[in-house]
Amino acid sequence: MAPLRMSALGATHPDGALAEAFRGGDPTVLRQVYDRFGGAVFHLALRGLNSAADAEDVTQTTFVAAWQGRETFDPDRGSLLGWLLAIARRKVIDRLRAAARELRVADAVRALPEPVATESGPERVVDRLLVAHELALLPGEQRRVLELAFYDDLTHQQIAAVTGLPLGTVKSHLRRGMGRLRQRLEVDGAAS
């Protein structure tokens, strides 16, 4: 799926101001970006590499590369988190390829790790992180409704009962919230 070009998802996104400041090169912003997204980048690296030391290296090089290449970040094409995760994912894949070559070069008897299933591959981890962040940015009531549907597997009637919201409001929150998450995946998702 071709990435959609929607400036509405960039500049007016809740992260938009931070992304703009980052692009502008304000040195204090790097720390803010790191505080907001460092955990997600580190998580992706850890999941992909299974080595804390390698994951730390990838996290570090990701933020250094992002800072040095910040002028190439285009908020109209996606979110800052999506961009950071794309950099980190490339670095994870580079490491895995290098490790695989190393195994061949050394002619080691160790078998290559089993291919990762789609549900746990780096693309899925990226999607998960993007959706988690987008979910956290939704208005509180909408977010709460989605959490009850996703995590607690409640029906819309049950959600209405738990929250005291009218049925129509619950359904509307589900539709809008899901739409927003889907849009994020379409723009920034690893599979897009």
Binding site: A40, H43, R124, V125, D127, R128, L129, V131, A132, L135, L146, A149, F150, Y151, M178, L181, R182, L185
Partner: peptide, 11 residues
């Protein structure tokens, strides 16, 4: 979206 959404609890 729903499947990925359910997985976000872990992250």
């Amino acid at each position: 979206v729903a499947a990925v959404g359910a997985e976000t609890q872990d992250v």
